[in-house]
Design a protein around this nucleic acid. Structure first.
Length: 209
DNA sequence: AAGTCACA
DNA sequence: CGGC
């Protein structure tokens, strides 16, 4: 891992661990993601109903993956929507990280891999497609810095913005598990980790109790 | 609204 | 905001 030091609780259940992963750990993760994307290619998810494409590209690893399409909407499923193959397994280093810091007895079932090109965004939303809200959502940032926005349990609650940098870990757990959050912008050229630019976000989730 | 946009 |  890396520095066990800094740990900021923004509000109950929201834990920010800036710089938790050192450069070597980040490079190792990028290599693992590269292998995952070879087997489970990135695809463009679309909004339920409208079919409007999102700006991020997406894939998953783990027994379950989060997917969305025009007809069936948001859900978890065991196979890639394009290749129909099972998702690749979650890398051991990610399972280790979860076991060390998630504070939850069971392993994650899903690791959503979101790739943000420098123009991509993610609207304010809640992660609420899981059946187990007692498990936290653990988020890892790799590559270019983003402007992350986090609010409360209501869409209209006041939000705060913070920059998430490569190697930062953010945990939504406890009272913060269902907080609205999103990505307002990517800052191009702020990291040398991904040679082609952009940002990768990994979110580890427990889906079922 | 896991969407976009305008405006202060 | 407004199309679903």
């Amino acid at each position: 891992m890396a520095s066990a030091g800094k740990e900021l609780s923004l509000s109950p259940g929201l834990l920010y661990r800036p710089g938790l992963l050192d450069r070597a750990a980040q490079e190792n993760l990028v290599e693992q993601i590269r292998a995952i994307v070879e087997r489970a290619p990135l695809y463009v998810p679309v909004m339920p109903g409208s079919g409007r494409p999102m700006s991020v590209r997406m894939t998953n690893c783990g027994p379950l993956g989060w997917v969305t399409d025009k007809e069936r909407g948001y859900r978890y499923q065991p196979t890639h929507p394009v290749t129909r193959e099972p998702w690749p397994p979650i890398p051991a280093v990610l399972l280790d990280l979860w076991r060390e810091i998630a504070g939850y007895g069971k392993d994650p079932e899903a690791c959503l891999v979101n790739f943000y090109a420098d123009e991509a965004k993610m609207g304010l939303h809640q992660d609420r497609d899981e059946t187990d809200f007692s498990a936290p959502v653990l988020s890892i940032s790799l590559g270019n810095t983003c402007l992350f926005r986090i609010g409360g349990l209501l869409r209209t609650d006041r939000t705060r913005s913070l920059k998430l940098e490569s190697g930062d870990v953010f945990i939504l757990g406890g009272e913060g598990r269902l907080c609205f959050h999103g990505v307002d912008r990517i800052y191009p050229g702020t990291s040398t980790l991904l040679k082609a630019g952009g940002r990768i976000n990994l979110t580890l989730r427990r889906v079922n109790p």
